[in-house]
Design a protein around this nucleic acid. Structure first.
Lengths: 113, 113
DNA sequence: TAGCTAATTAGCTAAATGGTAAAGTATGCA
DNA sequence: TGCATACTTTACCATTTAGCTAATTAGCTA
């Protein structure tokens, strides 16, 4: 989409579309961590880690501080709340075999019972 | 991430990271639709619409049929259920001012009360 | 058969993404 | 002051993505 691909939900979903970044969030759910701590599980270079963190920050999923030479990151879950709210409209579609129910309703509406 | 960026959750999040595709899903939540019907609200060319549908299909978010020259698409919500499940681990982080609570707990643990 | 409609495929461009190495910034400490 | 540590910035590369036009496939209908 050309017009405004930077809406908040799009930014959040794009940030979550990478397993490295999701792993980082999982780590941050345990509490704040420095960049080095966040990098430790991966074989990626530091600049790459920095980039991932910037993506998470731009999506509002983390907030960053300064303590001496460290830049601790902290989880910010508000965008996840928004994702959850977006999902709610679809909940009925995956609960209670909704798809099969829909098929049935369409059938009988056509008089195809 | 070089190794295996095609895990299911990543595919789903990537598919959802586009407002056009989310609008298509919203339309499909009302019931199946043809490609042309799905294209109608947008100023995009048909090939572009086709591509978006392919992304949604690859993520398992829609299923496609054949009826004469039409290719009706139907919402498949299972991947959204997976997203919802993934989100659950973070729910506590956005509910009940969890962040401020966390700050407080960290403070008193440091004896900084 | 010809022609219309629906949709996809092919081939292109521009921009974004994820990775790298090398250089630069900022802080603490000997 | 000088060095080590923790990160970021810069510059580059390859791949993917989102868009386009033009051409092609598929099916209905006259």
């Amino acid at each position: 989409m050309l017009p405004n691909d930077t809406d908040s939900l799009s930014l959040t979903f794009a940030a979550l579309a990478d397993p490295t970044r999701r792993a980082m969030l999982a780590r941050l759910a345990q509490g704040p961590a420095t960049v080095k701590e966040l990098a430790q599980p991966f074989t990626l270079s530091m600049p790459t880690i920095s980039k991932h963190l910037k993506v998470l920050e731009r999506a509002g999923l983390i907030q960053r501080g300064r303590e001496a030479q460290w830049r601790p990151a902290q989880l910010q879950a508000a965008p996840l709340r928004d994702v959850s709210a977006w999902l709610e409209d679809y909940r009925q579609h995956w609960e209670a075999n909704f798809d099969r129910l829909q098929d049935y309703l369409r059938k009988i509406q056509k008089g195809d019972s």
